[in-house]
Nucleic acid binder design. Sequence first.
DNA 1: TATCAGACAGTAAATGTTTTCTGTGGCCGT
DNA 2: ACGGCCACAGAAAACATTTACTGTCTGATA
Lengths: 338, 338
Amino acid sequence: MSKQVSIKDVALHAGTSIATVSRILNDVGYPISETLRSRVETAIRELGYRPNRMAQNLRSKQTQSIGLVVRDISDSYFGAIAQGVTEEASTRGLMSLVCSSKRNPKLEIEYMRLLAQYQVAGVIIAGAGWVDEDFRARLKRTVQDLNKQGVRVISCAPQEVAMPCATVDNSAIGREACRLLSELGHTTFGVLSGDDINYSNLLRVEGFAEAAGAAGAAWFKSTGAFSWQHGYTAVRELLTDHPDITAFFATNDNIAVGALRGLEEMGKRVPDQISVLGVGDIAMAEYTSPALSTFRLPFYDFGATAVKMIFDGHLREDTLVPFSGNYIRRESVGVRKK
Amino acid sequence: MSKQVSIKDVALHAGTSIATVSRILNDVGYPISETLRSRVETAIRELGYRPNRMAQNLRSKQTQSIGLVVRDISDSYFGAIAQGVTEEASTRGLMSLVCSSKRNPKLEIEYMRLLAQYQVAGVIIAGAGWVDEDFRARLKRTVQDLNKQGVRVISCAPQEVAMPCATVDNSAIGREACRLLSELGHTTFGVLSGDDINYSNLLRVEGFAEAAGAAGAAWFKSTGAFSWQHGYTAVRELLTDHPDITAFFATNDNIAVGALRGLEEMGKRVPDQISVLGVGDIAMAEYTSPALSTFRLPFYDFGATAVKMIFDGHLREDTLVPFSGNYIRRESVGVRKK
DNA sequence: TATCAGACAGTAAATGTTTTCTGTGGCCGT
DNA sequence: ACGGCCACAGAAAACATTTACTGTCTGATA
């Protein structure tokens, strides 16, 4: 509980001035004589001095940290993004201030503003836009305010508000999913959708719907949460109402894993009787049984890229770094059997 | 990119002094006349003023943030702890500075010291101790240094160094696991262990070994990473060398899930032929097939409790908040069939 | 009428840095 | 011998706050 040792103490102890100590620490300004330097360095070591970042930040007006607002840090999806952000940040010598919004839109905005008070260099939001007029307006205002203050804001998921994003083309994934299943002979689909209010989800479903329409295929949707639970129950409901469904498209892997489990309990063989296709390629997708076929989304890169965008020069509100989702073929998708 | 509006601007705009604005903001000191207050408040609103936390922290010497060093934020285990920490912190109006150490012991220590520079109120480390003389010495020194500086350090996993921890009794879990499987008639075990250098893991294995010794049971261990991959391959190796194994104890759910998948590919029925028992109860354990029997570890509470410990009064180095692991019976563990 | 208290407002110090500016010698070239 | 430059050291301002202290009125009491 003893007090913080400051640069002043070091200067006193080394018998020199504050300025000199600072110059030595930051290796800036004119060269320092070897004797003085070593005297100061031993003083630093003896006193165990560590610079106070708050003071540094205050003085230099540029902070060594960035902010991250994540929707649910315990979810693999966001965890992987968070990893990308924190690691990329740390290679740049930056700290990450992270807040978990518990899937509360108001809180997400609140946190963005709070982070700005901490003088972060930029704020990254990991969580797709909420399809909601009020949210959109708030987000827009918040982004404008932060930008005006010199704080950049990047999203790791599509937003309905014009702002820089590092994410995938979600509707392309939906289209691709439908195309892929259609080619295997499937004509009746179950779509296991996450929240309708989630913009990423909406885009995936729209993409799928578009392709299904073009192919003249039938599809039925169940909307719920992005959870195992939802996949587990939805698959049963959908199959009861529409027994001719032969393939499921889950808009996220969590849902798909639940679906796999649900189908197994119903005695349906995957992929012989029913195919299941996910999106995300979370770490465990490889170890489900059967192993999940899915689209790999480079979450880590979303996060890492967002950090890079904060620092790499010119950024307009329509700057968009689109990734592509690669289809990972495993075992849960197969040809439709007559 | 316009400059930050400061309290001085507000004071100027409202035609009053800085001190008064500060008093109004913090609602401290003697009462302020209604007219002045409202004048200041509109000024704040008009200018969009937000206090600079760096300056506040510097002045008041008490920061509104805590530090978290997590071993791998994309791993469900640590993600859940991180959630506990960030949420509990945020209910107390604190920010969380999080660093991901990428499973590098040196980096873990490095980050702890770095966080101290940010004047955090406390540092939480989520990651079991490394069984390593050098690491232990460094950790001990670091904890002492930080404490001397007034920064509390709490671990969310057992450490060989004497320090406050919020975690489970890992060896009890190992013992309990063996007892439980023995009661179901199993006498030959495979132990799917994580890194030997991981202290939590070591304790679990030791607990299991102790109980196995007492019961006169045979057991064989495969050591590897805490990963799906390891469970997947180890189960095959162990079963090839020791065909009479009827039950596996995985020291963590990730390993167990991989094992489940490996056994399925080998054509072994779980739990009819082979039982699999995990530790952790990560979110997906419920949705594997068969559903994984495991010990539930309250990760969220580890994190939340660690935050509480930072603020709740007296803390000695041997302060220990032990949780218990509850056995969650699902489908992957069964009676031994002759 | 003088004194005193109460209700405010404002000044200035302090926090730990970085950085600009001002000094102070010594040395070199003319 | 003197002007000027170089190599360095230290003083002080600035950053945005909080807060202890110093005022300044107004009104009441003796």
